[in-house]
Design a protein around this nucleic acid. Structure first.
Lengths: 327, 327
DNA sequence: ATACCAGTTAACAACGTTGTTTTTAGTAAT
DNA sequence: ATTACTAAAAACAACGTTGTTAACTGGTAT
């Protein structure tokens, strides 16, 4: 392991001069600086984080608590956040340990901030864990233990419903994952129910198409079952992008055209890579809005040393050809 | 941040005594030790890794290079490896940066070992990266730059083919992801081709069912297309668990029974959670064999400071009711 | 009493780095 | 030629920890 002192010896200067030279301090003359930098490169010098963070009390590192790798749901988010933080000089580290252990680890490592993916609050602690490091949570902002970035899924679905009603639809169905108690999915269902209630005074029975998962095949199966039962609808609000893909397959099989026979609005955060014949309308908070919000919040926590408020992101709608006005 | 010195002051002893007490050294009298430990707990003391690893040159941490979070393929592996390392007192950290940056980070962090998930060697460097830390790779052991743990996918499929031939099958098909150049998948295809060639002298045209991915729906679609075209087979070797699920769906739709009409052997590493009516035969290296091998290799690298050889794991077959003998 | 133990604890040095202070050398002003 | 000043570099202290060495204890043997 080559240290700052080896460089000093090789360059014939004191080691503190080397330190300054490598940090590009104006306290060392350009020629000397250049010589030192060259020697450092030549020797393949790598600064020792332990030593550095011992004195600076910083590690330029952000820890991400991610207890459920299996659920690839947030993969896209993490990738982007990782990139954005990198642009600001921070390194991202993931821990797939359970929340408590992960936070502990990150505290020991003297990470500068912690981002916690709070998967449906399933196994979250009910009292804030002791931490010297500021923690930001991504999940549900209802009675959060930590400042939280939340996506208003309920309003997103509601927005979809309202939009469809406003262009003349009356018979609207919602397809979503209802296989398990999952707060995130429940929010969507109740968004649908409330959205309908707000527009139709008399209580209409909600048309719910229950899928048993969030995969393409789940959507395909659920929609097919719906159609097989002879049920019909003029518009479908879908709880996820993959489900939507399944729905489209099923509709195709039944020779139902989009949007002539059925209009579709899909919940989604992914920037649309239009792989469909008919561009699909989307509601949701765009992924880069989410990631920028998170990144900014993290950087604020680190630099301003101030605890940010919880933030609820409101959805946008992007209308496309998949929606047909009915009047 | 409470340090060892704060404890020393509170306990009225020197700080070196505190250090020894907390590390349970025999050099400090039990009563003193107890008192110190109590105070430490009370103050919520957390050792500073930076300081510790500065002097000990260890961090009790293993870094995992995982550039493609999106591909959830290895999630199960990582989870298990994480647990096993934890049992040995090591913390696992993941980096989703690209290989070079990740290795750099881990070097700076003075991680004790690095595990690299070498996704189909797609963007791997072609010359070993400079690293002070031993690196183990999981992927393909063919001309590896680092000691590598490899799974013999080719022989796994071959084993499946041979087994089917030996129980009387002649018309055998292989379904796999042939959508993209992926070394891992290619290995399986050629395992099939070779396996057939070894048993049938005359060159029979291989029956390949090309799927356009590794998801359930891809298998379903590919198999359905195969059947729709009026083709038949008495046995299917499937390249992945999810594909197999899709195949089964398709067979069900065509009222073909397993194993009466079609026998199935599936490639898989996952310990079988029997969700099927008919238990499926499996080939592959069980996941816990893979993870234990990796964990052991990592620990060896750390403790013995010796570079291990590359290891190729040989597959096992687990015959179940999904295979019917034909004579 | 003096010297010599063992058992405890205190003091010290070191790890590699950064920020501050002191020294050195070179130049300008008296 | 002495002083005053400035730029550059060296020396020093500190960060929190661990391993080593030195300094105390009280007791036992001389």
């Amino acid at each position: 392991m080559v240290t700052i002192k080896d460089i000093a010896k090789a360059a014939g200067v004191s080691y503190s001069t080397v330190s300054k030279a490598l940090r590009d301090s104006p306290l060392v003359k350009p020629p000397t600086k250049k010589k030192i930098v060259n020697i450092a490169n030549e020797l393949g010098y790598q600064p020792n984080v332990a030593a550095r963070s011992l004195v600076s009390k910083k590690s330029d590192t952000v820890g991400v608590v991610w207890p459920t790798v299996e659920r690839a749901a947030h993969a896209a988010l993490i990738t982007k956040i990782n990139d954005q933080l990198e642009n600001h000089g921070y390194t991202t580290l993931l821990s797939i340990n359970k929340v408590e252990a992960a936070i502990n680890t990150f505290n020991r490592l003297q990470v500068d901030a912690i981002l916690m993916f709070n998967d449906q609050g399933q196994d979250g602690p009910d009292t804030p864990l002791p931490s010297n490091v500021p923690i930001l949570s991504y999940g549900i902002a209802k009675n959060p233990l930590y400042p939280t970035v939340d996506v208003n899924r309920r309003d997103a679905i509601k927005l979809a419903v309202h939009t469809l009603v406003d262009i003349g639809h009356k018979n609207i169905a919602f397809i979503g994952d209802m296989s398990q108690r999952d707060q995130l999915q429940d929010e969507k269902v109740s968004g649908f129910t409330e959205g309908m209630k707000e527009r139709f005074q008399e209580a209409t029975a909600d048309v719910l198409i229950p899928a048993s998962g969030l995969e393409l095949y789940d959507g395909y199966l659920a929609m097919k079952k719906f159609l097989q039962a002879g049920k019909t609808t003029t518009a479908v609000v879908s709880g996820s992008y993959d489900l939507t893909r399944g729905v489209i397959r099923a509709l195709n099989e039944y020779n139902l055209s989009i949007p002539k026979d059925v209009s579709i609005i899909s919940y989604d955060n992914i920037p649309q890579t239009n792989t469909f014949e008919v561009p699909i309308s989307l509601v949701g908070v765009p992924n880069d809005v989410i990631t920028s919000t998170i990144t900014d919040a993290l950087l604020n926590m680190i630099n301003k040393k101030q605890v940010p408020q919880s933030i609820v992101l409101e959805p946008e709608i992007k209308l496309n050809e998949s929606c047909l006005a009915l009047e």
